[in-house]
Amino acid sequence: MSCARCASPLEVGDIRCAVCSLPAPAGSDAPARTTASILRCDECGAAVTYSAEHVGTRCPFCGAVAHLEQPADPIEAAEGFLPFRVSPAEAAAALRSWMDTLGFFRPSDLAAKATVDHIRPLFFAGWLFEADALVSWAADSDAGSGSSEWAPHSGQVPMRFDNVLVSASRGLSAQEVARLASGFQLTNIAPEPVGATEAMVERFDVQRSTARAIIANAVHGTAYARTESGQVPGRRVRNCHISVMVQALQSRRYGFPAYVLAYRYGDKAYRAVVHGQDAAIAFGDAPLSIRKILLVAFGVAALVLIIVAVLSNR
């Protein structure tokens, strides 16, 4: 069942399209349930049943403004799992080769001396969305500028989004998910986790309305990045503003495979992440070699002294 105006799928319980607000035809939604509305506090997270009789929109626990959650606002589970294509042993090897790429200022014996505490396979929670959009934009850039270094430009461009990954993970940071995003193959998606039996499955702990808001934000953010870098003429851009009309927005909830590794160097613990499907994507925290940094600093200082001495002797 899709929206007649923007072709985005309607979910059970939707009485209006979440994208363009066109009402769903009567009778298409599930029979009106008598579930109570939930008032969720933005401050303390408390959820209370909403009643017209004795609560306004303030939280009874802390008095902060609370927001009403939709009655049909379920927390949904993953629809599928991408399989692991990297074994724990390969992940550990990937960690060592990543350590070798870290550069001069890291301890030389990092890869040799580091001991791996644990390698945890996990499926982190995320959405993949696809959509069509018409983006109306306006911005200043250096192209065609006159007395000022800026000139205004505008445009309207259709965009297609295919399988853009949006993080629903609390365990991995947004930056970590962004670095993992590129390496996933969307084949052999299974309804249950396969392969890594001991892998933890992260739960989607946001409700549908919140999920939609996060995805809407991601659509806007992706469209903005593409407009700024690919649509506005010129090399430098400022005041880029966009309006996005989304159509046929579809999103799916998946578990994405990754390893979180903890390793020790000296007496300190560090954390690293290895992609579950592409061992070339590995990153994390690593110690710096104080000895090498000091050495370079002294070397530079000595060099400066020598140059000063030579110049003043002239």
């Binding site: 109306s136 306006a138 000022s148 309207q156 996005v244």
Partner: peptide, 18 residues
């Protein structure tokens, strides 16, 4: 500080929702 005035024309499309 001076201001250079440039004309801009463009198209917009979007939903009116609520």
């Amino acid at each position: 500080t001076k201001t250079e005035w440039r004309s801009l024309t463009g198209e917009w499309q979007g939903y009116f929702r609520d």
